[in-house]
Write a protein that binds this DNA or RNA. Structure first.
Lengths: 123, 123
DNA sequence: TGGCATACCTAGTTGACTTAGGTATTGGAA
DNA sequence: TTCCAATACCTAAGTCAACTAGGTATGCCA
């Protein structure tokens, strides 16, 4: 079970990334996340739908109703703004990940104790 | 400026990782984070101290007062439980990171399972 | 004495997951 | 037909934690 904060932090980039592969609807996205996580993250519908609505209100996704298969579904797809937002989210994530990796590398190699390497020149 | 959720998600692993390098006190930790982020994450004292107190209440860190340099400081260091928690946090993080990387790799190489109708070259 | 950096802390607001429901269709089993 | 599970969508209220906006105190220098 993921910590709530990590789930919150990954929600937006995760859904934007899934929708960047192509159109999708809520229930399907839930199953995608279940597969990606090996069933370990326990995403619920009550988690997903508010996020989708938020993304829509931010203009990052568009939605359309469909009943092609007899069952009504609300399909979502990324807007151009959504694609930009995904890249921003991605860069934020990689930024934090880089910092953590740097710290963990120090711990694994035992080089951290005294001095911090100041290599990051903002890039 | 990091999204609040990402800051929240990284707070615990970040501080645990910093303290895993050795003892540290609040103000110093803030400066460490400032260096790690290139000053881009805007961590404040009002963010840090509650986290430290929470970590202590969870038994992940211990604290001691010191006035070696004339100025009182509260030094924190990891407990054994804190070291275990760090590994758990790390595995959670890497788990999510792995999923995102997988998705992003699909996007970059165009190997997503769904054929997108619109041009993938995207401008 | 005044001002700034250092160094710690907390109350109340805001935002986002979680709990705990609700509505409706489809298809198989009894 | 009726029952049940899976599919498919949604929301209100509780809970938790960052954030805003303060507060207290020491060391150093002009």
């Amino acid at each position: 079970m993921l910590p709530r904060e990590l789930k919150a932090a990954s929600a937006k980039p995760l859904i934007l990334s899934i929708l960047a592969r192509g159109e999708g609807y809520g229930y399907q996205i839930l199953q995608d996340i279940g597969e990606l996580s090996g069933g370990a993250w326990s995403w619920s519908e009550a988690m997903l739908y508010p996020v989708l609505h938020r993304l829509k209100s931010e203009g990052l996704v568009q939605s359309r109703w469909s009943a092609e298969s007899g069952r009504r579904r609300k399909y979502y797809r990324l807007t151009d703004k959504g694609r930009e937002a995904l890249q921003i989210e991605r860069s934020h994530w990689l930024n934090v990940h880089g910092a953590l990796e740097q710290l963990w590398k120090q711990l694994d190699t035992g080089t951290g104790e005294v001095a911090v390497t100041k290599s990051a020149t903002g890039g």
